[in-house]
């Protein structure tokens, strides 16, 4: 609106529009350069990175090589951690969506004593910081014998994903017309059948938003895995953080490792940006 009304006022407006576009292009460049630098650095030979910055490679693009990636993917510690990341992320995402969908259905469509208070309590848990639970859960896991295991990491992520997930899904389920549910019940459909055939399909956009949120959150986590995963179960973030200690001498490992680790969430984000934004709105603005 601002611009169109200025356009109407003549050349001054058009000039301002051009300046604005130039400024925005410059800002966009600012936002792109750091990640682009990581990509280029990851494609340079070890010696080149230790002598000068990645931008020097732009003059000799032919020297770029996938050698660092080949070396990295030959390293069983790295490939193992990538597999761990995949296992942790997928199972934590599926479990959160599944468990939260059941609970959200109960909160949205079933009457039971303490309904309102239990829901309020769940929402209250939304803001418990992960940090408060690290020490007690480490003790608990130690006693149960799951400390260090993949299951421990996954369950922790699931528990801390649930409040937001239940909140988001219940909100979305409430928008499903009650008549649909009542009609299905009159037709003699069981509750499980109603969940599977009516609620889940209609709630799919919210489920997609939630899934993407959870996926990004778990994939990118460092702290939880740092505390609960042992050497053989550590995800890529933990494997790479130990390399950061000697930053500078090992850019040939860190740069391709970091770039590989951000490729998947970036792709998920770019493919499903719409759902991601919707989830953001539901979670924050609404």
């Amino acid at each position: 609106m601002t611009l169109t009304s200025r356009h109407a006022r003549g050349d001054g407006g058009r000039l301002r529009g051009t300046v604005l576009q130039g400024v925005l292009a410059l800002i966009a460049l600012f936002w792109l350069v750091p990640t682009f630098g990581l990509l280029i650095a990851s494609l340079r030979e070890e010696g080149d990175n230790s002598t000068n910055g990645w931008w020097n490679a732009l003059r000799y693009p032919a020297q770029l090589t996938f050698a660092n990636y080949a070396t990295l993917l030959d390293n069983p510690a790295i490939t193992g951690s990538l597999t761990n990341t995949l296992i942790i992320t997928l199972s934590a995402t599926l479990l959160v969506v599944g468990i939260a969908a059941l609970a959200a259905y109960a909160f949205a469509f079933l009457k039971f004593p303490g309904h309102d208070w239990i829901f309020l309590a769940v929402v209250c848990l939304l803001v418990v910081p992960v940090q408060v639970a690290l020490i007690p859960v480490a003790k608990l896991y130690g006693a149960l014998g799951v400390f260090g295991s993949l299951a421990g990491v996954v369950l922790f992520h699931v528990a801390f994903g649930l409040p937001f997930a239940i909140f988001l899904l219940r909100d979305c389920f409430l928008e499903i017309p009650r008549q649909l549910i009542d009609a299905a019940r009159l037709d003699g459909a069981g509750e499980w059948r109603i969940i599977a055939r009516v609620v889940l399909p209609l709630g799919l956009p919210a489920i997609a938003s939630l899934g993407i949120f959870q996926f990004l959150w778990v994939w990118n986590d460092l702290l939880v895995a740092l505390v609960f995963a042992d050497q053989s179960n550590q995800p890529i973030t933990v494997a790479l953080q130990s390399q950061v200690r000697q930053f500078g001498a090992n850019i040939d490992v860190l740069a391709p490792g970091a770039f590989l680790s951000l490729l998947v969430p970036l792709a998920v984000f770019l493919l499903f940006q719409r759902f991601f934004v919707q989830g953001l709105m539901a979670g924050s603005v609404k």
Binding site: I27, A28, W54
Partner: peptide, 22 residues
């Protein structure tokens, strides 16, 4: 523009940390 500026939200703090160490 929005996609470019929004993109880092998908990148882990670890990867962002490596990026900004450089």
């Amino acid at each position: 523009f929005k996609t470019v500026v929004f993109m880092p939200i998908a990148i882990s703090f670890l990867a962002s940390g490596v990026i900004f160490r450089m």
